[in-house]
């Protein structure tokens, strides 16, 4: 089998297309690169969707936590505490066990049967957990940024007669985003790393359709040689991390474009706010 045939056979194996059976013996480097890369599709899917949906929810949560009304503030505080205070690993297990307990046949709501079986599958169940998890972490970052908005900016908004929604959307929100962005970049990177946990915790891989680490682990188990598959995963993830840093860097430049060049917040590792 040539390398090109391997690529066409296995490139979308993680989604269920191409060859049915995984290679069982005579593992080539090409097979390992292709299958692990194919698994990476899932990591990108989980990371991208969770980040996208989580961003909006995190904004709402941060606002709620900064709110003066206890009815808004308390639930947000509790939500953030529970998701930041417990391991993602346990959250996956718990979610899976809870979702499995839903009735198999679906739930009757006013005569309409709502299907629930799809919730126990990784593509939905794990995505929900990752979404809630990243929302909690990002909300804490946004909340911190919201409280760090310079007093002068708010006074300037008042002086211009901006109030309510106008003040929020024109002054508070952009400033919050600008201050939170380096921390949020870190959160995005570590969220992509966290996606590797999906198939190792609770959610089973259906028909051997797994993520990058799932296939790497498969190869390591079969060949008893960790020195090839794991460095391949590492290579893919370093590329992914660099891509994320670049993309977020572009947004960061855009958020800071009104500032004089020497005061711009550069994106760098801020270990205080690793997940």
């Amino acid at each position: 089998m040539t390398c090109w045939e391997t690529v066409t056979g296995y490139a979308f194996r993680s989604l269920g297309y191409g060859e049915k059976l995984l290679p069982r013996s005579d593992f080539t480097l090409c097979q390992q690169f292709t299958l692990i890369g194919s698994g990476l599709i899932w990591n990108i899917y989980f990371g991208l969707l969770a980040l996208l949906c989580g961003f909006f929810f995190a904004n709402a949560l941060a606002m709620a936590k900064a709110s003066r009304h206890a009815a808004l503030r308390k639930p947000a505080e509790w939500f953030i505490f529970v998701f930041r205070g417990s391991p993602l690993f346990i959250q996956f297990f718990l979610a899976y066990e809870a979702l499995v307990m839903l009735p198999r046949a679906g739930i009757d709501v006013f005569g309409i049967t709502v299907e629930t079986a799809w919730l126990t599958r990784a593509w939905a169940g794990a995505l929900i957990v990752l979404f809630l998890n990243t929302a909690a972490y990002s909300a804490e970052i946004f909340y911190g940024a919201l409280r760090a908005i310079p007093k002068g900016d708010l006074e300037a908004a008042d002086a211009y007669g901006l109030t309510g929604w106008n003040k929020f959307i024109r002054v508070q929100w952009p400033t919050m985003l600008r201050l939170a962005w380096p921390g949020y970049t870190n959160e995005a990177i570590f969220l992509f790393h966290a996606t590797t946990l999906v198939f190792f915790s609770g959610f089973p891989a259906f028909q051997q359709r797994g993520d990058a680490l799932y296939y790497a682990n498969y190869f390591a188990d079969k060949t008893f040689n960790p020195f090839i598959p794991y460095p391949i995963v590492a290579f893919y993830f370093i590329c992914l991390t660099l891509l994320v840093i670049w993309l977020f860097g572009v947004v960061n430049t855009r958020l800071n474009r009104h500032l004089p060049a020497n005061t711009r917040a550069r994106i760098r590792l801020r270990p205080q706010i690793i997940r």
């Binding site: 990177i189 790393h193 790497a216 993830f237």
Partner: peptide, 19 residues
């Protein structure tokens, strides 16, 4: 640690160290 998920290290080092 910035570029690579920690779980990869965990799975890798345990076998690699053992061997």
């Amino acid at each position: 640690v910035r570029g690579i998920p920690d779980i990869v290290f965990f799975l890798f080092f345990v076998i690699a160290l053992d061997q």
